[in-house]
């Protein structure tokens, strides 16, 4: 034993323990078996859910309101996902090597994070500092000053028209759809995300099977990247699903890392990006390398004079709220610094 441990061992000896007794061990095993059964049922339900969701179509109007990255309409036809725990095909890791390293680490850190699912009836809340392009369509980029954007997103998994609220520019903008929209890839509630597979290959299969046809010229890889990005910002997912989303990104060609990325507040992070070869725009997801959490975004467009920043955000608070427009519920537990702010 080296010196520091030796000293520490003297300073803080391990409390003496014994192994579990036979009855204790039996109870541990029984509870574990019950938990594993429950887990298996959850995976089966997720499969059934995907098939059911495939039958419902939703209007795309809503999506523009959901902000930043959501660009897809909800699926038209779902395809049955693989039934078993084994992926039907294992996809090669094709992202840039540095990106793979970053994604692996983000995945591991994300898997370790504590995520409290929203309680029934609660909305997801996120507060961001935003700069956006206020220039005219077709004209030069004019980045407006910083402002605060708050969003409340309904976590109702069934079809609903009241999808939430955006508070921005001193006004409330309710997010309402023309018709009831179920939770799904275009409205990723915690429940929807929890229903996704936690194996990266199966997850990609599921996401691709849920892609709605897109009417722009983006490549399929770009559309999948955009979709995954939309599942990571102002949303909440179980840790193992977020971990799988990061792993899934390693299977998409062209995903790159931007070292030294900073969000709108200048907080350092690791940027993940993919250049859309058609529109020559790219979004950068900025991650807190320690938690794998998205802390902000930047959007660039490429032009004759090089890249122009046309939008940037910094996510400063996440939480849940009981009603749209109400401040977030303080965490039930001891107050904890938001992981975006980090521990000094």
């Amino acid at each position: 034993m080296t010196a520091p441990e030796q000293t520490l061992h003297d300073l803080l000896p391990a409390p003496v323990t014994t192994s579990p007794t036979a009855p204790e061990r039996d109870r541990i095993e029984a509870r574990l078996r019950e938990g594993l059964r429950h887990q298996a049922r959850r995976e089966q339900r997720a499969t059934a859910w995907r098939e059911r969701a495939g039958a419902v179509a939703a209007p795309g109007v809503v999506l523009a309101c959901l902000g930043a990255v959501v660009t897809l309409t909800v699926l038209v036809a779902g395809s049955p996902a693989p039934e078993s725990g084994s992926a039907q095909r294992v996809r090669p890791v094709v992202a840039a090597p540095l990106a793979v390293q970053v994604l692996d680490r983000a995945s591991r850190n994300a898997a370790r994070r504590d995520v409290t699912p929203p309680a029934p009836g609660e909305l997801l809340y996120a507060r961001s500092i935003v700069r956006s392009n206020e220039g005219r369509y077709g004209g030069p980029v004019q980045l407006a000053g910083r402002h605060v954007r708050e969003i409340w997103l309904s976590q109702e998994d069934g079809p609903t028209q009241d999808l939430g609220l955006i508070r921005e520019f001193g006004q409330d903008w309710p997010i309402r759809s023309g018709g009831p929209v179920p939770a799904g890839p275009a409205r990723p509630t915690y429940g929807y995300l929890a229903s996704l597979p936690t194996d990266p290959d199966e997850l990609l299969d599921a996401l691709e099977s849920q892609l709605a046809p897109w009417d722009d010229a983006r490549t399929r890889d770009q559309v999948v990247f955009d979709q995954i990005a939309s599942l990571m910002g102002e949303v909440a997912a179980p840790p193992d699903v977020t971990a799988a989303l990061f792993q899934a990104l390693t299977r998409i060609p062209g995903v790159q890392v931007e070292a030294g990325a900073r969000d709108l507040l200048g907080r350092p992070g690791v940027g993940l990006t993919r250049t859309d070869g058609v529109f020559l725009t790219r979004d950068v997801l900025i991650l807190d390398p320690r938690t794998g959490e998205v802390i902000g975004t930047r959007s660039y467009m490429d032009g004759p004079q090089g890249e122009t920043l046309y939008g940037a955000t910094a996510l400063v608070q996440r939480g849940t709220a009981r009603r749209a427009g109400e401040p977030p519920v303080p965490p039930a537990d001891a107050p904890r610094a938001t992981s975006a702010a980090g521990r000094a």
Partner: peptide, 12 residues
């Protein structure tokens, strides 16, 4: 052990 099973995909 339940968490370990759920996170098996993240084992390096």
């Amino acid at each position: 052990y339940l968490v370990a099973w759920r996170r098996r995909h993240t084992v390096e």
